[in-house]
Each structure stands twice: as structure tokens, then as C-alpha cells.
Simulated assay, not measured.
Amino acid sequence: MEKTQISVIKTDAGKCFITDCKAKEGYYRNYHNSVIKSLVFDGSKATETFYEHWFEIPSFPKKIEKVISGDRSNLRFELKNPELESENLPMTIPYDDRDLVDDEAREALYNFKFDLVPDYLRNYDCDLVLLCEVDNFRDAPSFNYPAIKKFDFSDKKYTVTNKNVRHSLIDLIVTPEPLRANSPCEISSKEVYDLVRQHVKDNINPRLARITSDYDFCFTVKKIIPLLKPHTYSYQDIFARTKKQRAKLHFKTDTSKEIEIFQMTNEQDNYKGYTPINGFKAPNEWELKEMVDNFLSTLMETINSPIEVCPHCEGAGYLQNLSSQ
């Protein structure tokens, strides 16, 4: 039987990354069943990471053991009713002596019992392959952005994580996953659209702005601006049932008006009349996350900052205080 090969990335941050998956893609990668989960490295179990099929251990292993599930021992049959014990019906029958009692009688009168030996460790022979040693190592930043998109015929929330960050084909081929954070990366326009849409929904101040279009393909936010003077106007309900109701004059007073402050579509849908939001690209994952965080912060500061009608030009202009929330 071929020995398991475990690849190791050693870092100067007091940790190692290990994997026993050789496949880069396809069926054998998607359905790989790692033996690492059942191994113990210098007395400790490996911990899973968000890198697919990669695990983390504290240091380069000196001793590797496998957890062996406890075997069954003392297999036997015990009399269900102890009061029936006799010379022909002993209280306990060892499993190997089960033929001493007729099969039907044994099934009717006895319970099968056994003891479990506790799990134990056994030395595990495998090949450790040091892929590389990394200096100045730091963990990749955590991407954890609530997002929303259409699944089937309804919207469903999901999370944009590190797995949504894309790297170039050459980095996928030559750079082990735990080290890719240092390479150029991006998040697509659709994923940016999904996370921005959910972020606005979660953080908008309804007193200052409201969402007027909220779809998987287009999104609009309008500012609510108080009027200097309430405006009363009249109207007729042309959709009323009767001629008399349609002729009736109604009055309404507006104390605010709305102006569009933000709108977007995504490059995939490119919905007519809306501006496609760009994906984000950066030299590494730390800068990529900083770009996303800065965009969300600036966007919400703009949306949630009050706007007032300018009193000096009779409402022809607006005053916005970006420092107010």
C-alpha cells in the first residue's frame, strides 16, 4: 500500500500548513477525504483552515500518530431474564460458544453484548514533504461580508468570504493556497454588487434616505430632504371606481422631497439606465479588503449624512454635512 504523502509549508510565525491532497482540480480534489483529520501531530490534532484541504499545526511534526477506534471485546450473550438461569440456560454464553444454545432459543432469551476498548494511538508512517519555508508570514485577512442575491425565484442572504477572492491562473498553479494572500487578487462586480446592496440595507438611516429600487439587477437610494416650507397640492384619483370619486379633489402636503444619491447595477446584468459597479482589484488580499472597507465606509457616510435645502437660494441648492450621522 502506498504511503500517504503530507506536504508541509513551514512559517516563521510558529505554525505550519499541511495537506495530503495532491489534486489541483476536478473530482479527486472536490471529493478528497483527508486522513489528516484522524492523525495526531506531536500530541495535538490539526485544525482546519478556510483554505480547502489545508490544515494548521503548531510546528513541523516530529511524531505522527493515528487515532484507532476502540475494538469490540468480550463478545457474549447474556440472559434477558436472570431468573431463567439453569444448567441448560447459563447466564452468560461466550460468543465462540454460541452453538451451545439453539439459535431460536438464543435469539428469544439472550441479548448480544460486548465491551468497547477505548480509542488509542498508533504510530503512523507517512512521507513528509517540505514544500517551502516562509519568512515574515502573516495570516490572510478575513473576508466576511453579508451579501444577498437571487436563488431560484427569491432573494437569499449569503456571505462573501475568502473563497470568493480570485487569483490568477498562474498563482493557482504554482502558489500553495495558504500563501496566495500575497499575490494579486480581485472580487467580481457581481459579488461587490451583492455585498454593497446588503450593507446599505443593513446600515441605512431611514430618516435620512430610503431605498427605492432593490433588485438582483438594479439598486437605487434617494436622500430625504426637508423642505424649507411645506408644500400643499391638489390632485384627482383618476383610478377611482366611480365618476364622482374620480372628480373629487384631494389635498396632500409634502414636508420633504427626494433626490437620487446612489444607484448601481452589476457588469453581469448591466441593467439599462444604471451604472455598473466595478469589481475590486489589488496587489494582495490585505489591500483588497482595505479597498472594500473604505468604499463601504465612504458610501454610508454619504448616504447617511443629512442634506438641507439652501435657505439663501430658495431651494435651488443643497447643504450637506458629511460629519453628521
Rank of each mutant, 00 (worst) to 15 (best):
E2R: 14
Q5F: 13
K10H: 07
D12T: 03
A13T: 06
G14P: 00
G14H: 06
T19S: 01
A23C: 07
A23W: 03
K24D: 14
E25M: 13
Y28C: 12
Y31S: 12
Y31L: 13
H32N: 06
N33L: 15
K37F: 13
S38N: 14
T47A: 14
T47Y: 11
W54H: 02
W54I: 05
E56I: 15
E56N: 15
E56K: 15
I57K: 02
P58A: 03
K63P: 06
G70L: 07
D71N: 14
S73C: 11
R76F: 00
E83H: 09
E83V: 10
L84T: 04
L89S: 02
D96E: 11
R98Y: 08
V101R: 06
D102G: 02
L116A: 10
D119I: 09
L131Q: 11
E133F: 11
V134Q: 09
N136R: 12
F137A: 09
I148S: 08
D152K: 11
N162T: 07
N162V: 04
N164V: 13
R166W: 13
L169N: 10
I170N: 11
I170K: 14
E177D: 12
P178M: 01
R180G: 01
S183P: 01
S188T: 08
D194P: 01
R197C: 03
Q198H: 07
I224D: 00
I225M: 03
P226W: 02
L227C: 08
L228N: 02
K229F: 07
T232R: 10
R241P: 08
K243V: 14
K244C: 09
K244V: 15
Y271C: 11
G273P: 09
T275V: 12
P276Q: 07
N278G: 04
A282D: 03
W286C: 14
K289A: 08
M291G: 09
L299K: 03
M300V: 04
P306K: 00
V309T: 13
P311D: 00
P311W: 00
C313K: 06
G315F: 01
G317C: 12
G317L: 05
S323Y: 10
